[in-house]
């Protein structure tokens, strides 16, 4: 034991600069391209900086302007709706899917992989696939017409567009969260299910009294991951509703607004930064909310 401690001390003394040489590339990248932009976003939000103009300190003027900016409220509404619809779906559906693929029946590895495929595809590919599927003359409408429902304007109506984008987000995320749940389900003691079955609990009852409590911490994790991702939604809506966010911009999300406001030669960097700050604050609040909900259920 003693010699080992001595070795540790020697290891520590060897080449005092080398630890920093090892960490330097990573630290440099993260400092210059993540932490510095983060600080400068906070800083810029109090200025009227534009793409080609350094700008001056304007205090809270950007935030005051946000209060009267209809587009900002539309963005906040849409991003919030996104969380409210997508998160429950992504907490529940992948769990059911994981239960479906949990048993080692023949061919199950194939099904698991197939269900994961949308995760691997780029969001651009996924978005364009569904733009074609949901097109007025696309496959979904052809099927709907064949069964007598008639055509549905998935990509022309403001609300249908938003809900279609949400459905695409859920579709792409299912496989990812399914794999997370699969690992959690594997750790549920089999005896619990057996005991409940002996006591006469049906499948539905067992789901709520055995499975859900056993994977609850995973559900919280999925809730936290998916709510943060849902609030920052950009690509799905951008691709399906177009860069201007659908009819009259009514489908704009907050991150779309950041991108639209802050880029280009006349980009209002200061104002876009103020919107970004709102994105930060809501993201952190969502995380705290989910974690707190978890603790409350514990008590």
């Amino acid at each position: 034991m003693k010699t080992r401690t001595a070795d540790r001390i020697k290891i520590r003394r060897q080449l005092p600069t080398s630890p920093w040489l090892f960490a330097a590339p990573g630290l440099a990248i993260v400092a210059v391209f993540i932490l510095y932009p983060f600080v400068s976003t906070l800083n810029n939000s109090f200025t009227d900086k534009r793409t080609l103009i350094p700008g001056e300190y304007v205090g809270l003027a950007n935030f005051r302007e946000l209060l009267h900016d209809d587009m900002f409220w539309i963005g906040l509404r849409n991003s919030t709706l996104y969380v409210l619809v997508v998160v429950p779906a992504l907490v529940l559906l992948p769990l059911l899917l994981a239960m479906l693929v949990q048993k080692h029946i023949p061919g199950i590895t194939f099904f698991r992989s197939a269900f994961y495929t949308p995760v691997v595809a780029s969001i651009v590919v996924v978005g364009l696939i569904w733009v074609w599927m949901l097109d007025e003359r696309g496959l979904v409408n052809a099927v709907l017409e064949a069964v007598g429902v008639g055509k549905v304007g998935f990509l022309s109506d403001q609300w249908l567009l938003l809900f279609s984008a949400m459905a695409v987000t859920v579709w792409k995320g299912l496989g990812y969260y399914m794999i997370i749940y699969l690992a959690a389900l594997a750790n549920v003691p089999r005896e619990l299910h057996e005991a409940a079955a002996v006591d006469g609990a049906g499948a539905v009852r067992r789901f709520f009294s055995v499975t859900v409590p056993a994977v609850r911490s995973t559900m919280v994790l999925v809730g936290a991951l998916s709510s943060v991702a849902a609030f920052k939604v950009f690509s799905e809506v951008y691709l399906m509703a177009g860069p201007t966010g659908g009819p009259a911009g009514e489908d704009t999300t907050l991150v779309m607004l950041v991108q639209r406001t802050g880029t280009g030669l006349t980009g209002r960097v200061g104002y876009a930064s103020a919107i970004s700050v709102v994105v930060f604050v809501v993201t952190v609040a969502l995380m705290l909310l989910v974690l707190r909900a978890d603790r409350k259920e514990d008590a």
């Binding site: 810029n44 950041v258 802050g262 980009g267 960097v269 930064s273 970004s276 700050v277």
Partner: peptide, 14 residues
């Protein structure tokens, strides 16, 4: 923990 979507404009400026 920094949400990348929130800092893209500053990254672009950088």
């Amino acid at each position: 923990l920094v949400p990348v979507e929130g800092i893209i404009i500053a990254q672009f400026t950088t």
